[in-house]
Computed example of a mutant assay.
Amino acid sequence: MFRNREFRYFVLFQVVFSTIAVGVVSFFSAIAASVVAVAALLLCVSNLVYARWRYREMGKLSRYLRQITAGDYALDVRDNEEGELSLLKNEIYKVTQMLSEQGNSLARDKSKLTDAISDISHQLKTPLTSMMVMSDLLSDAELSTEKRAEFTNNIRIQLERIEWLVSSLLKLSKIDAGTIHFKKEPIAMEELISRAVEPLLIPMDIKEQRLRLAGDGAVSIGVDANWTVEALINILKNGVEHTGEGGEIAVSFSDNALYSEIIIADNGKGIAKDDLPYIFKRFYKGKNASEGSIGIGLAMAHSIITSQNGDIEVTSEPEKGTTFMLKFYKQ
């Protein structure tokens, strides 16, 4: 305690004032001077005892803070007493819990990053290996023209797949990082869906699939049109790929006081019950996934929709079809 300069000054001033008080009172009465001296002594002793207790508590807090800096967040210093130290203990505990949550969050993010890098490496490994093999074969001078054209086309397809994967991952990383500002502008539901369906009209025509659209043409929705169209394309594309020839893709939309809703349904192969909880997880490929599926389209759609105060649900029955329900809440 006495290493503290402020405390030494406090004790010195207390002794000086007590001495002066005893000296002044002694001119009037020796008994009164004795009483004042005893009272001053008791006051000094009580102050010393209180200061010692306070320093001991501060020492405990110092040790606690050192443990926190070492990464130990398990200690609990809260108490229900009144006073400055109790308030300080409670505030330190709040900071400890916040640091603990941040540490856990960083650990989770690190784990996710590790998993993402592993998944990306796995997704890139297959097409890169395939291209390396085909490039070696192309160096053969005796390779036929037909085979050379086939290998060249396969390499182009693999490059397009890698380009799409990298582009999609970049978009997903921007959404996860919160660097994308989703503009909320009104757009007619019918126009939004038409823009999403347009790139898929040719694949649907090839498979002779029907498109059924239902909803009030006057209904509008407040979303970022470009990003929402991309989400809808990924969901519609999933339906087209998993619906057989002559199948049907039905899109309906509605609006109420709470939310705007878009329902996309198909009568395709459906999704296995075991796969339903994981279909929005990136790189997840279900039992009915197509051969060229990467498992990132629905994950991107989910991120885009939920980032715009929306929600997406899915129901499915094997061999009967799948229904995606998209809700964009207004508040």
Rank of each mutant, 00 (worst) to 15 (best):
N256Q: 11
N256K: 09
A257K: 14
A257N: 12
Y259S: 15
S260N: 15
S260R: 07
E261C: 11
E261K: 12
I262F: 06
I262S: 05
I262Y: 05
I262A: 06
I262K: 05
I262H: 04
I263L: 14
I263D: 05
I263A: 08
I263G: 03
I263K: 11
I263C: 11
I263P: 04
I264E: 03
I264N: 01
I264W: 02
I264F: 03
A265G: 04
A265P: 10
D266N: 15
D266W: 08
D266P: 05
N267T: 07
N267Y: 03
N267R: 05
N267I: 03
N267D: 14
N267K: 07
G268P: 14
G268Q: 12
G268Y: 10
G270N: 10
G270K: 10
A272E: 10
A272M: 13
A272D: 10
A272L: 13
A272K: 11
K273A: 15
K273M: 06
K273N: 07
K273T: 03
D274T: 07
D274F: 08
D275Y: 07
D275N: 08
D275V: 06
D275I: 07
D275T: 00
D275R: 11
D275L: 13
L276Q: 06
L276Y: 00
L276T: 04
L276I: 14
L276N: 02
L276R: 03
L276V: 09
P277S: 15
P277W: 11
P277R: 06
P277T: 10
P277C: 15
Y278K: 08
Y278I: 00
Y278E: 04
Y278R: 08
I279F: 02
F280T: 09
F280V: 06
F280E: 06
F280I: 07
F280Q: 07
K281L: 10
K281C: 04
R282W: 00
R282F: 00
R282V: 12
R282Y: 00
R282I: 07
R282S: 15
R282P: 09
R282H: 08
F283V: 00
Y284N: 02
Y284H: 04
Y284I: 01
K285F: 01
K285L: 06
K285R: 10
K285T: 01
G286F: 11
G286T: 02
G286R: 08
K287R: 14
